[in-house]
Nucleic acid binder design. Sequence first.
DNA 1: TATGAATGAGGATTCATTCAT
DNA 2: TATGAATGAATCCTCATTCAT
Lengths: 191, 191, 191, 191
Amino acid sequence: MEQLAGKKKAILDTTLELIREHGFHGTPMSLVAKKAGVAAGTIYHYFESKDALICNVFSYIMTNAIEAMQQNDSESLPYKYRFYNLWLNLYRFYSHNPNVLIFFEQFVNSPYQKLMHDTKQDKIRQHLNLFMAQGVRDGFLREANPEVLSVLVLGNIITTAKMMRLRHVSITEQELLQIREIIWDGMTKRS
Amino acid sequence: MEQLAGKKKAILDTTLELIREHGFHGTPMSLVAKKAGVAAGTIYHYFESKDALICNVFSYIMTNAIEAMQQNDSESLPYKYRFYNLWLNLYRFYSHNPNVLIFFEQFVNSPYQKLMHDTKQDKIRQHLNLFMAQGVRDGFLREANPEVLSVLVLGNIITTAKMMRLRHVSITEQELLQIREIIWDGMTKRS
Amino acid sequence: MEQLAGKKKAILDTTLELIREHGFHGTPMSLVAKKAGVAAGTIYHYFESKDALICNVFSYIMTNAIEAMQQNDSESLPYKYRFYNLWLNLYRFYSHNPNVLIFFEQFVNSPYQKLMHDTKQDKIRQHLNLFMAQGVRDGFLREANPEVLSVLVLGNIITTAKMMRLRHVSITEQELLQIREIIWDGMTKRS
Amino acid sequence: MEQLAGKKKAILDTTLELIREHGFHGTPMSLVAKKAGVAAGTIYHYFESKDALICNVFSYIMTNAIEAMQQNDSESLPYKYRFYNLWLNLYRFYSHNPNVLIFFEQFVNSPYQKLMHDTKQDKIRQHLNLFMAQGVRDGFLREANPEVLSVLVLGNIITTAKMMRLRHVSITEQELLQIREIIWDGMTKRS
DNA sequence: TATGAATGAGGATTCATTCAT
DNA sequence: TATGAATGAATCCTCATTCAT
């Protein structure tokens, strides 16, 4: 989660944390300013408005998520291995950054989302789409619309990551791997 | 979605619709009053505060969701048939009531959620939990924590219902049944 | 200057007075509220915004000015008499309502003016235009564009009314009548 | 309108233009800085405050106006000729510098005016006073308070110059000369 | 029950001004 | 001189809530 420096980063990080805790509405700019250690007006040097700030937090997060997802991936690895790695990468990212997960969900279901014209918006799903399409083409996955598959996988990862956080269901490492297996098994052809 | 009458229902319905469209923050009580055709003060006869109103909308929705889920279910039916029916019931409910879907997600990821002490909070998952436990016990599903399974199923249904709405991925009836099959296969298949 | 009642009138009157004294910028809504004896929010029940309030003050004033101008006028009276009366009516109005005069000037030279789509905008000059046209047609005034004449007369009246207020030149009743004579003499044909 | 050089002049000119367009309130220092091509802080090297800047713009303009007014004037010329020349000089100046005209009016009706202790404040009227007094003394003008006459003449010129700009009344060269004649006739004619 | 005018605390945003470089 | 990031007081406006009718 590192890449910007100084006040701008402080503002973004603070906003992310506060919004996770108090929601968009419950997070006044004055509070962001105070927690980030800057003056209220300073925020407006870096971001045009509260909306813009929130959208920037989204982009900032997205960049990190995409990076995390692709770690240790390589076209030369076996498909199933790649899938398992990708699944775990994303799961770990969301799981280790609960702020992101909750912010993300709040954002997607909010009117803010409409303000985003960023192509970054869904790089994750685009990447997944390609990966799924390849799996179908090469016979690793059952015949199905790759777009549908990638939404399912993404939903599955997020659901799993949220499980403990929101549903108070705690899972063991073993269960985690089982969940990954369930979605993989479901997507592969019946033997 | 019918069961209350008169102004109270009008207020609940209006609130639901407005919040889906504009979010919690973007929905002032005055707007609810105007759209519902009542005076601002009238809302406070039925609900203690805005928070209470929002929580009541949640309960109201939940009641409907639970009802929808259980339609045509019976213990005497075959397990897989029951699962398929239950899946489709919930999918259809969310799919036909997009307001509910979005409100629900917003609510769950918001600070309002903490205000709910209602046991109704997760009747859906409780019902699912029992159903999954039975499936595991009777050998229809693979050995797994029933709680985990029900969260996965619920996540899968919601993901599917949101697919078209939020991700602009449209799915055919055939794909829909395939998705249902994927999650079933994943939960039953042994590697 | 009477016609509305209650808080709305209080707000308009207070605004007029404060703006004359401190200018548009120097008159915060909070001050208007305090002086008018209402809560800040109350102003927004009656006026959409500060801009709208200011434009409303203008309309409010205009209505009064038009009324004052036409007092004791009648088509059956001699032309010169009508002119003298009209001149004095307007002069007296501006002179007795210095708030109006200054507000008016500030308004006309400000960006607020562009927000006015009110046809009331220049009823005074329209009325004057007709009156001047008649005077030219009937040979009482020299051959000249009536529009030009009415602007000259209006400018003359306002200049006179402002004289004491802004230029610290005080004039006697006799000088006043002389001024009126000067503009009349200028506009009538050379003998 | 030339006499200072470099950044100071750029700041003054920019301020004048921006204030005409957007008013005192609508012209932030940051905008002046940007349009003038200097840093915000630089303005404060030349002017103590925004108020001081605005008052300086006024003085700057005044200097130019006075200069323009006296062009081609000489005590040895015939009185009526001198009046006609003076009238046209001022008219032309205001007419060719609409920024000045509007700024001037805004300034005079604003609280800024009170901050001016500059004797320049009304050099124009002082000059006019002397000229009118001479006219009355030498029998060119009717018996009247010279101060009153000069205010009338000044008001007449400004009214005329504003006519096109603010009232959207366009006047021909011929009408222009007629207006000048009207005010002259009014001031000289005896009934 | 129902109304809606009134409230006023709270929040987003602006902008004159400063100061370290 | 010149810069422009940073400041934070001040301002406009919103909106949940109350209460007299």
